[in-house]
Each structure stands twice: as C-alpha cells, then as structure tokens.
Design a protein around this nucleic acid. Structure first.
Length: 939
RNA sequence: GCUCAAGUGGCGGAAUUGGUAGACGCGCUGGAUUCAAAAUCCAGUUCUUUCGAGAGUGUGGGUUCGAUUCCCACCUUGAGUACCA
C-alpha cells in the first residue's frame, strides 16, 4: 500500500464535513477556547501559497487545543464588502454581489482542500443583509450614545437630554465638539426640536461634521490618502483637491485613554502595542490662553512644557487658524494672505516632505504674556499644524529646536531660561535635567516642580490648566461608494434620524451604474425613489411608496472597517442569528477571542476600531468584555522567489546566469517561477511554450543547462512568481503544504517561498507512511516498547508541546522528522508508541494521521483523541558526558553519573588519567564545577 | 530624524537560566539500485589547511574559566511613523 495522498485527503475532508467533526457547541462541560483568523476579503485572484500561512498556524493551535480537552470555536467567514468588486462592477456592469459570490466559492474550494478544521456552520459574510442589519444596529447604538468623562463610559443620550432640561450644559463633563455654546435649562427647552438635534450631534458618539477630504472631480469620488501620489490620483493621474464635505464621523477620541490603558492587559507583541500607543499619541501638559492686545479673542495653546513659559518670545499660529484673519494688521495683510495662499497650494505630502525650509510671516499683532504682561509678537508658520492641539503654539526658542530655528531665521531674540546651559548653537530640550532660571517664581525649580507651580498660577489667573492631549483623531465613517453597508439614516429638514430597529436592515438598492451621479452624489443617488416614508412607518423599499411625504435616505455607505469591527461576536451565536446580533448566553460563554492571528497591516486600523466598538457595546450593556482579542499574533508574509533570465540587448538570445558577464549589456526578464527546478535550472521546452517570443529564441547554456537568476520579492502576478496552493495540493498533498508552510521559518517572520524545498517534508510523510504500513498492510502490533522507543516518543511529546505553546511550529516539524527517523532505525512496531505519535502530529498533518489512526483500528476521529501525556522518567539519564576544559579551552569529555555531588565530580575528574596527562604533574589553581554541565580546570 | 525588530554555511533556518555553533530541510559531491531516467537508499558537505591544526555567529570593544546568548559603541537591512508643540 502506497501513500496515496490525493485519495486520503479527499476521503477525510468529506468525512469531516459529513460528520460535522469540527462543529463547536455553545453548551459544553469542557473549558472554552476561541481561535480566530482575520477573515479574508474574497478577491478575484484566489489564494496563493502565502495566504493560508496564518490559517494553518491557527488550525494547528485549534486542533491542539481540542486534543488538550478544550471546546474550541474556530470559525471562518468573509469580509465581503470592498472596492475591487465595485471597480469590477464599474468596468463590466456585473453586480458586485455576483462577483463576490463567485469569488467566495473559489475561496471556499481552496480552503477546503487544505483541510482546515473550521466550523463552517457559523460562517459570516459582511455583505449579507442578515449580517449588516446588525452593523446598522450598532451604528444606531453609537448615535444614541454620548461619552461621560466623569464615569468614563458611554451612556444613553436620553440621560444627557434630561440633564440639559434640568440644568443646561454648563456643568457637564462629556466628550463633545470644541465649538460648544453654553445654555441654561430654560434656553434648552425654548429651542426648536431641530435646533436641539443640531446641538445633540455635537455630543453623539457618531456625528455629522464637515470634514476635509481628498476630492477628485474627474473620478467624481473621494480618495483615501494612499490613493493619491504627488497630488494626483493614482488611477489616471487626475488632479485632487481638498474639499470640505459633510460626513459621518466616529468619536473614537472619547475612548483614547481607555484604548491606551487597555493595552496593558493584552498579550500582544510590544512592537504592536507601541504602534497603537504612538497612534493614540498621548501627551501631558497644559493649555494656556494668551490675551491679544487690542482684541477680545484669546489664543489658546497646548504645551508639554508649561515650565518654560517665561522663555516665550513669540507665538505661532497655523496658517489655517481662525484668528489669523481677525488679528492681522492692515500693513501685514498682503504678506499674510500671500503666505496662506502659498501654503494652501502645497499638498500635505509636499509640506511633510519639506521639513527643512523655514517659512512664516508676522501678523503685526501682539499677545500679552500672562505673567510679565510683556508683548509677544504673533506669527504664522506652516510648521504648526492646524490639526494637532489647538493649531497654535507658544514658541520657546531656547527649549524647542523648531522654535529655535524659526527664531534664528527671522532674527527673533532668544532668551535663556535654563541654569548653566549653553544655547548659542541649539535649543536645550532635556527636560529631566532642566533647572529653570530667569523665570520669576519658577527660578531654581526642576521640570516637575515648575510645571506643577505654573499650572497652579495659571489657574489662579484663569488663563490655563493642566491638559492631556491625544493625537488620535475621530474617524471619518462615510464613503461615496456603492458596495458597502447603507446607513440606517434618513433626513428630516436636513437633520439625521435613525430608522426604527424593526425596519432593519436597510438593504442596498439596485442601481444601473456603480459610479457617482452627474450631480456628484454617491452611487446610491442613482437608486430611484429610494426613500423612507415616515407616515406609514413600515416601508423601506421603493416599490411600496405611496403619496405620503417621503424623506431622503443617507446616500453614503459605511467604510470597510464597519463590518469587521464586530464580526467575532457574530460567530458566537449558533442558533438565533435572525433575532440578535449574538445571544446573551453565547456572548457570556465565549467571552473574547483567546487567540487572534492575522497580518500586521491592521495594527492601527481594524484592531483599534474593533477595540473601540467593543468598549462601546460593553458600556451600553450588550457585551461583558472590555477587550476583544486576548492574544494576538501577526504572521509574516511569504514572499515570492522570482526567476530571471538574461536577454542580450537588441537580440532574441538569452544567456545563462553564469555567463552573463561575458556580454556588455543584458536585460533582466522575469519568467514564470513554476518552470524552474531546485537547482535554478529552467525547463527550456516549457519556456518556449510559455510565451511566443521564446519559441524561436536562442539560449546560451552553461554545462548544458540554463540557470536563472533569483530575486526575493512580494508575490505578484506581474513578477510571475505566484505559486498556487491548488497545484501544490495536487502534486504533494495538503499535508505536505501545511508542513512546508510551517517549516519555512518562524511564523512571525517574512520568508521566501521556494517550491523546490517541499520535497523534504513530502518524503518525510512517505517515510512516516512506511513506518506504519508495508506492502502487506499495517505493520503495527502490541509489542512492548523498548527503552529507546519510549525515549524517542517522550522527548517528542515534550518538544512538540513546548513548540505549540510558543508558536514555534517550524521546529516541531524537524522534531517529527527526527522521531520518525529514529523509530524507523529502531524498527519500532509498538502500537503504544506509534499511536500517540500520530496524535502528536495530527494538528500539523491531519489527513495522513487520521488515515493511519483508523488503520490502527480506531473508529472515531483522531481529533477527539487525547494529547499524549509526557512522562519525564523516560528521559532521565544515568550518566552524562562532562566536557572538561582547561583555562576555558575544551579538551575532552568524561562520562560521569548524573547524581554526583560537586565535590565528588571534582575528585573524580582530577583523578582521571586524561586529566593527569593534561596537567603533567602540576597542581591546578582552581577547579570550577557546574553540575550537569562542565568542569573547568584553571591553572 | 524618531521608534521597534533583525544580522549565523551556497539557501531557508536550529541552538535561552552563558557550557561541544551550524539541528532539520533544500542544494551540492560521491556511491548503491536502474538499459536509462525518476523515485528510493547509504556516505559526505562552515571556511582555510602544508592534514597537524587554525579561524569562525555584521564590525570594534567589555564582562566571564567560557559569549550566537549579557553590556557599550558602530555598521547594515527590514517595518512603522513623520514638523505632535
């Protein structure tokens, strides 16, 4: 009987599907474990060998946890809203739903043949109306919530309305827009409902606001920052302008501190946590308001160095700052306007790239120092960003290098307020060593003391207080696209209202074209009579509209991250998927994701938004967890190894790699990597058939072979280095693919794929098969295991268990190879060794182990077996070779019993003949004995 | 510029309380088998070498009897971030 992997794999994949072997139960006496992959976007290109890496790793862990007696939830689904399907629709007119369905089928087929232990009964698709119904529902929860800073949680907006009617808004401590006007209870009650709604929008956790976006008039759409290259659109090179549009935003900034604190308890890598910390960008300091001479307005600045306030020699405003136009004096007006125009023209990218050029203009106005009352000139400069802090800074040249450079450039005097420090060349920025001088009541204080004191003094004056600032910006939530979740929103007199819960979902309407309308409305603007009728209060679809008053629906759709911010809850619900987003019992049972595996590209997007939504759902009482993902692993990318041939310039002749130096000019051309063998030799006949230009080409060989050059780069069609897992499964089997992907290198590392190497793990599987099965059938009996057999088994158990717990799957593949080699050499036929070995390997190579497990006479799936128990007694050694070193140099080894005392070892070693010969009669100065490890003789 | 991660044979990579560097696999060399090839099996494979040995984990120092491992400085590569006041 040969190892016929194709048949074996098909057989067991069918068996698992039919028997629902991996269906998780919400009702189990076992402890739960939730293993989740970042679900894929089903693209038209299908999977290449790089994609399943993380899925294989999570599958190994899920199968391992099952063997360890856990009730494992290991689901999979599709992030099926997205741009490529929409773009395909624009080009071909095919509905994105159809494209998506086709792609999902391909994905499913590809995933199935790798033998994953997914519970497909819980599949989710973000584009399924039954799913996005709940995405819309969560949006409504955000709309109905405000964030209370006192209790540090989101609450029902009704509570806030109650407060407004009782005492106005003067004393509320909540997250809101900065342009809030104060009102009393009486004033609130006197306002029109529309006016009240407008105010409430400034408090809601999702709100409408005018935001600057990148608008491309030619394409008629908004572009993301990474879709713009050098100020023009990436597709087509059309000009892009900054435009203010009314958009939905998410008040994620309200959660900045909790998102930061929450990181502490998570089992994530430090670098990932650090990335999130940087993104949140907390800085502690003070806000200070400066009076402006001859004006009523004040300039408010944020500073992390309030202790340097006596060193302020000018103020700088961002050119976009609201006050600039008001305070500019007539004689500076021309210069200021010219400067503002100049900076507005420069794209953000340009401004970022060019950090060295110093530019700015004096406004002619002066502010007043809060303590000295001295006049401070007010400048504008583009090194101050409108989007951070208040868009204004107090400039302290002696304590900040940018202020120093600015002052130097414009000959603004620089005063020194630090004791014993030379600032003639550069600013002094070391706040730990700072001793303040020339600063009135702050003299002689260090940074900490001075900061505390100056904030106290500012508070006395009513001109400032301590403040913490975050870099985290609210997230724009509107997209002018078709293929996304519609908002559950309609407008009455321009104010948004939520559609009743019982009318959800608001389904995507049919449109003729997937482009924006001629008037510049999003694609949904093309849907005829797509409207909500309030009076009949039951109609959403267009065909039922009668003559009642109709109100327009929101035409934007939600961004890609909406559906992926809560999908992990959806998998938990197994029965009532129509009635709830996830049932209370299910949420309580599964809690959070224990292990989450996915790409590092989601470090700040998806992972931050998910954490934000989970916190909101917790605050509003829908879930009982604070963080969705306990442990997180970023798998590294698998890169392609491109194959390069060398064409002699101007000819149709191709020279082998080793001979290319003989020619003056050769061009590198990438060819299909699947035509190249393990020794970098290309199959010329295949190449000739590959593309017509090679049919009659001449090939200059070395030693009868054409050798290609190699380049490691991202797997991509354009480099012809894509390797398809279907072909690998066909040729070597899914178990070989799984083992090889793990064997390539550490999970989290970037590593190149090279199909040639797969023969190693493939022949290992053949060896494994041979260990169990000979020509005549199964070769395993109830023999007593030998000591060596037991030693091999138990060291394998120990190593594999450690490896899986540490996610070093690559080294356990080696461990299996060694074990099989040893047992083959020992001619082991003992069932008590060979059966547990199968169980150990089953997470890695599920098909072959399942087959052999059944051949050994088991009728149940190997996935419900027990992970073998490690018994250390089989590994205890009675003696060990001690390395003996002389002055640190290793000379020889002596075999000694393991349980000897330090003194006994020393005595034994010194009495040994080899030692005596080495010492030649001299007496050693010192003998260092490390029990179990080494003896070093010095002298 | 800043932050983080990493540098080990021809290649992917092993080696953690500091103790015989190069496990395992690919590739390569030789052999067996074969008409031949594939497949399979066996032996060898860090470099240098006068065959005794010597050098060796990015570079230079340090701690130590002993360093891939710990410390300092530097170089290189990759990732993230970018005037954050």
């Amino acid at each position: 009987m040969n190892y016929n992997f194709n048949d074996i794999e098909a057989k067991w994949q069918k068996y698992w599907a039919e028997n629902q072997t991996f269906k998780a139960s919400n009702n189990s006496s076992k402890p739960k474990y939730y293993v989740l992959d970042m679900f894929p976007y089903p693209s038209g290109a299908g999977l290449h060998v790089g994609h399943p890496l993380g899925y294989i790793a999570s599958d190994i862990y899920a199968r391992y946890k099952r063997l360890k007696g856990f009730n494992v939830l290991h689901p999979q689904g599709y992030d099926s809203f997205g741009l490529p399907a929409e773009q395909y629709a624009i080009q071909t007119g095919q509905h994105p739903a159809i494209t998506t369905e086709t792609n999902i089928k391909t994905y499913r087929k590809q995933l199935d043949q790798i033998g994953f232990s997914f519970d497909w009964s819980r599949e989710v698709r973000t584009s399924d109306p039954n799913y996005y119904k709940w995405t819309q529902w969560i949006f409504i929860q955000l709309f109905e919530s405000y964030y209370c800073n006192n209790d540090n949680k989101a609450k029902d907006i009704k509570e806030l309305i109650a407060v407004f009617s009782l005492e106005g808004n003067a004393n509320v401590n909540v997250a809101c827009d900065d342009d809030i006007e104060l009102f009393s209870a009486e004033q609130w009650k006197a306002k029109q409902p529309e006016e009240q709604q407008k105010i409430l929008l400034k408090y809601r956790l999702t709100y409408l606001a005018k935001t600057e976006v990148n608008w491309c008039p030619v394409l008629g759409t908004v572009l993301a920052n990474d879709e713009i290259v050098n100020g023009v659109s990436e597709r087509g090179g059309h000009p892009v302008v900054r435009k203010k549009m009314t958009q939905w935003s998410m008040r994620i900034s309200a959660y900045a501190e909790r998102l930061l604190q929450g990181l502490e308890i998570l089992d994530w890598t430090d670098s990932l946590k650090e990335t999130q910390r940087n993104w949140i960008g907390k800085s502690v300091g003070a806000s200070v308001s400066f009076n402006i001479n001859n004006h009523d307005e004040k300039i408010v600045v944020f500073t992390t160095r309030p202790d340097t306030i006596f060193g302020v020699s000018f103020m700088t405003l961002a050119p976009e700052h609201d006050l600039v136009k008001k305070i500019t004096t007539p004689d500076q007006k021309v210069a200021i306007e010219a400067y503002i125009e100049k900076t507005a023209k420069r794209s953000e990218r340009e401004r970022m790239a060019d950090v060295k050029t110093i530019s700015g203009v004096f406004t002619g106005a002066y502010a007043e120092h809060p303590f000295t009352k001295a006049p401070i000139p007010i400048w504008i400069g583009d090194y101050v960003l409108a989007g951070y802090g208040t868009g204004a800074v107090m400039s302290v040249p002696c304590g900040d290098q940018r202020d120093y450079a600015f002052a130097n450039h414009f000959n603004i005097p620089i005063s020194n307020i630090f004791e014993g420090v030379d600032i003639s060349e550069e600013a002094y920025t070391d706040k730990e060593k700072t001793i303040i001088a020339n600063s009135d009541f702050l003299n002689g204080m260090n940074y900490k003391k001075a900061t505390k004191r100056v904030i106290y003094e500012l508070e006395q004056l009513g001109q400032g207080q301590g403040k913490t600032n975050y870099r985290l910006r609210d997230a724009v939530f509107s997209r002018q696209r078709y293929w996304g979740e519609p908002f559950p929103v309609y407008y009455v007199n321009g104010m948004p209202r939520m559609i009743d819960r019982e009318h959800l979902p608001v389904q995507l309407p049919e449109v003729e074209k997937y482009l924006p309308t001629e008037e510049g409305e999003p694609p949904l603007g093309r849907a005829e009579k797509w409207a909500w009728c309030t009076e009949s209060n039951a109609v959403v679809s267009n065909d039922k509209i009668d003559n009642e008053t109709i109100f327009p629906l929101e035409l934007n759709t939600m961004p890609g991250w909406a559906g992926s911010s809560w999908y992990f809850f959806r998998y938990m619900e197994e029965t009532n998927r129509e009635g709830v987003f996830a049932g209370e019992e299910a949420l309580k049972y599964w809690e959070n994701v224990d292990l989450y595996i996915g790409g590092a590209e989601h470090a700040t997007g998806h992972l931050l938004y998910s954490r934000f939504w989970v916190k909101l759902l917790k605050d509003r009482g829908f879930v009982n967890i604070e963080e969705p993902f306990k442990k997180l692993i970023n798998q590294g990318m698998i890169l392609g190894t491109s194959a390069i041939i060398y064409r002699i310039s101007g000819t149709n002749e191709y020279v082998s790699k080793g001979l290319k130096e003989d020619y003056d000019e050769v061009e590198e051309i990438r060819v299909d990597v699947n035509m190249v063998n393990a020794s970098d030799e290309i199959a010329i006949e295949k190449l000739k058939n590959w593309q017509p230009q090679y049919e009659n080409a001449k090939f200059i060989l070395e030693e009868g072979k054409y050798i290609v050059g190699r380049e490691v780069e991202k797997m991509s069609k354009r480099w012809f280095n894509v390797v398809n897992p279907d072909l690998i499964c066909e040729q070597y089997g899914a178990d070989s693919l799984r083992l090889y992907e793990m064997f390539l290198g550490p999970l989290e590392q970037y590593k190149p794929w090279n199909t040639a190497g797969i023969t190693g793990v493939h022949s290992f599987l053949k060896k494994l098969w041979k260990l169990y099965v000979s020509k005549d059938g199964v070769n395993v009996n109830n023999d007593e295991p030998t000591k060596d057999n037991l030693k091999t088994l138990h060291k394998t158990i120990k190593k594999v268990e450690e490896d899986i717990e540490n996610f070093s799957f690559n080294t356990s593949v080696s461990t299996f190879m060694i074990a099989v080699n040893e047992l083959t050499a020992q001619k082991c036929t003992s069932k008590s060794i060979l059966e547990p070995l199968l169980v150990l390997m089953s997470p890695y190579a599920p098909h072959i182990t399942e087959e052999l497990y059944h051949q050994l006479g088991n009728s149940e799936s190997i996935s419900i077996a027990k992970f073998p128990v490690f018994d250390a007694s089989h590994l205890v050694e009675s003696s060990k070779n001690y390395p003996i070193s002389f002055n640190g140099k290793m000379r020889f080894t002596i075999e000694l019993p393991m349980d000897m005392s330090k003194d006994a070892i020393e005595k034994e070693v010194l009495a040994h003949e080899k030692t005596k010969a080495q010492l030649e009669g001299r007496i050693p100065k010192k003998v260092i004995v490390v029990p179990g490890k080494i003896v070093n003789i010095v002298g």
